[in-house]
């Protein structure tokens, strides 16, 4: 590495206090309740977990408790759009996608319905409940549906902003967030532009594109790399579909190497979308930080991220590996 890279200025991001992304969703939904009378919410017996209580309390006539019946919830949400409502469905990511794939496919996506599928407890970091609840395939399932927008937010503030933004967007959306309290570092009341990548660090030697909880880990990895004299560019890809291809292509034209990082299976995730983009437009060595075609298991979120290599340490290792492949 050249000394020049190492002295590039790094931006500082401050964690204003750990918060859960699901609470960002809840806060966004509460605000939408006041702002937009067409917003309605449906929940399959997980109102507390999804942080939908406030909306339910403020707008009992616009809140629909459907019980443990996710298929019916998705069908109802599709039907509620007829007459102008904007339904937000709430349950865990697993029950928001895999359990109801055909209902989403036919009644929502193929029928072009303006439904917002809001999914908490995604990835490994729901923790102790284990693999039955830890879906690592949901991004893939949702991005394969024509017309579906797929968003995975990184912190509380961004999740709140995304919740507000998707209400303004006409069309089906999959909004993915999680359970654990994680660093909150994006601007409060920041603007959320669907499909627009966010550059967090400028760098020259390697590009790190991350989504969801791994965005903060990518920033930590960039610090580690900086100490080793490696200049890493960090991009937050909150919208996996439509992907901000230009942002990624432009970055790798400069760095010549890329690491993708996500709390998801490498099959079907952000990494594959990036690989396709680069294969078509800018072939570039790529390394994947993702789960390796496996189910999860019980454990604390921190233990799971460590065991499955979804952390700053592994992102930094993969960055050095991919630089060596240039």
């Amino acid at each position: 590495m050249t000394c020049f890279s190492a002295v590039l200025h790094m931006k500082t991001y401050t964690n204003t206090g750990n918060k859960d992304t699901r609470s960002g969703f809840g806060a966004g939904l509460t605000e939408l309740g006041q702002k937009n009378e067409n917003v309605v919410a449906l929940c399959a017996d997980l109102t507390g977990s999804l942080k939908m209580n406030e909306f339910a309390k403020n707008h009992p006539n616009r809140f629909f408790q459907v019980g443990i019946a996710e298929a019916n919830m998705m069908g109802m949400a599709a039907g509620m759009t007829i007459g102008g409502k904007i339904p937000f469905t709430g349950t865990f990511a697993n029950f928001s996608t895999g359990r109801v794939y055909d209902q989403i496919r036919q009644s929502i996506a193929y029928s072009d319905k303006n439904v917002k599928i809001c999914a908490s407890h995604s990835g490994l970091t729901l923790g102790e409940d284990g693999a039955t609840h830890q879906i690592l395939e949901d991004i893939g399932l949702m991005k394969m549906l024509p017309g579906m927008t797929v968003i995975n937010t990184c912190d509380y503030n961004q999740t709140k902003a995304a919740t507000l933004a998707v209400a303004q967007h006409h069309g089906p959306v999959y909004l993915r967030f999680g359970r654990p309290k994680v660093a909150n570092f994006t601007p409060e009341n920041g603007e959320f532009q669907i499909g627009k990548a966010v550059h967090l660090q400028e760098g020259k030697d390697v590009t790190i594109v991350a989504t969801g909880h791994l965005v903060w880990e990518a920033l930590e990895a960039a610090k580690e790399l900086h100490e080793k004299g490696i200049s890493a560019e960090v991009i937050n890809i909150h919208t996996i579909k439509p992907l901000d291809e230009q942002a990624i292509i432009k970055s790798v034209q400069k760095t010549g190497a890329i690491v993708t990082a996500e709390e998801h299976n490498y099959l079907g995730g952000l990494g594959e979308s990036v690989a396709r983009t680069l294969a078509l437009h800018q072939p570039t060595p790529q390394e994947f930080v993702a789960t390796n075609d496996t189910f999860g298991e019980s454990g604390t979120p921190a233990q799971l991220l460590e065991k499955y290599g979804l952390n700053a340490k592994n992102i930094a290792l993969k960055a050095q590996k991919v630089i060596a492949r240039k």
């Binding site: 019916n72 998705m74 069908g75 109802m76 599709a78 039907g79 007829i82 007459g83 409502k85 055909d102």
Partner: peptide
């Protein structure tokens, strides 16, 4: 046509959703 159908079992849920919206709209 207001919804795709063919994969069976989904239409009653859709109809319930549309009926709920009618009530919200005072229709």
């Amino acid at each position: 046509i207001r919804i795709a159908s063919g994969s069976l079992g989904q239409g009653m849920s859709v109809a319930i959703g549309a009926a709920a919206t009618k009530k919200l709209n005072g229709d």
